[in-house]
Design a protein around this nucleic acid. Structure first.
Length: 270
DNA sequence: ATAAGTGTTGCGCA
DNA sequence: CTGCGCAACACTTA
């Protein structure tokens, strides 16, 4: 489940490795992940030279001389720099470069590889509507974003059009560090709690990014991250004692997703 | 072996 | 418009 730390890491490596390479060929094994007909996609990007690779939230943004390539790994997948000789078994999309290397992209079910023209990036709605990168959001930004909202704090943090990059893996520890119950409504949050939340978002994502992302995800070279379940404080630790107060950690349903909380440290009622 | 649970995003509904 | 539940269908674990 790639979230901001994994994507940021990938974008950084792709920037270092891919810039200057020319796309010699494109092979699409799953056309439904594209936003344009396969023939148009191939025609648009074949022969293009990579200019820069950046990210926004969970999206990779590859700028080429002939247009933008936007990639979202959805609920999990790999983006690997290999050769035709070392091709992984599973791949949905292949970009062959002029130097003999190949970018192999795979995702389980929900993943996108989208094209947008250079002169109209805004035509790609999915990236155009993304909020600011979670790592760059300050407490004052949060206060401004929260103004007039009435929803749950967890739903808000997962809404990529408000803040981009937080997913259902890192959010458990973020809310715990801020001592907030996921179902707290936004208009009940105090200034102190918002300060703690901004701090928690930054500390958590930065910590995972510095370790190369989650250990179950691989980077551009197939290396696993070093952010392990030992680094996770409360997420997926159902039944274990809370590290702060030793109360048993609970798994609860929060809308259509699950949440892991310490009922003592993260009370719903204040 | 069969089935449930899991991450993400867009869309339909009140 | 906004918040919320659900569907899309791959792969791991019970």
């Amino acid at each position: 489940m790639p979230e901001l730390p994994e994507i940021a890491n990938l974008a950084h490596q792709m920037q270092a490795e891919l810039v200057g390479k020319t796309i010699a060929g494109i092979e699409v094994l799953q056309p439904k992940c594209l936003n344009v007909p396969e023939a148009d996609f191939v025609a648009a990007l074949a022969g293009a030279k990579v200019c820069a690779v950046t990210y926004r939230g969970k999206w990779l943004r590859v700028e080429t001389t002939q247009g933008w390539l936007f990639v979202s790994l959805g609920m999990g997948g790999e983006t690997l720099l290999v050769t035709r000789e070392t091709l992984p078994e599973k791949h949905r999309l292949l970009f062959d470069f002029d130097d003999g290397t190949t970018l192999s992209i795979n995702f389980w079910w929900f993943g996108y590889a989208h094209y947008a023209p250079l002169d109209d990036v805004a035509s790609h709605k999915m990236t155009a509507k993304l909020g600011p990168n979670a790592l760059e959001v300050t407490a004052d930004d949060l206060r401004a974003l929260f103004k007039g909202r009435r929803g749950r704090v967890k739903s808000f943090l997962l809404d990529q059009s408000k803040i981009a990059g937080i997913g259902n893996f890192y959010i458990h520890d973020i809310l715990f560090a801020a001592r907030l119950h996921p179902l707290r409504t936004i208009n009940t949050l105090t200034d102190t709690e918002i300060d703690a939340l901004a701090c928690a978002i930054h500390t958590n994502l930065r910590g995972a990014l510095d370790r190369g992302g989650a250990s179950y995800e691989v980077d551009l070279h197939g290396q696993n991250g070093t952010y392990t379940m030992e680094d996770v404080v409360i997420g997926y630790k159902e039944g274990k004692p809370c590290p702060v107060c030793s109360t048993e950690i609970e798994k609860i349903k929060t809308g259509s997703t699950s949440s892991f909380i310490c009922p003592q440290c993260q009370p719903l009622e204040r």
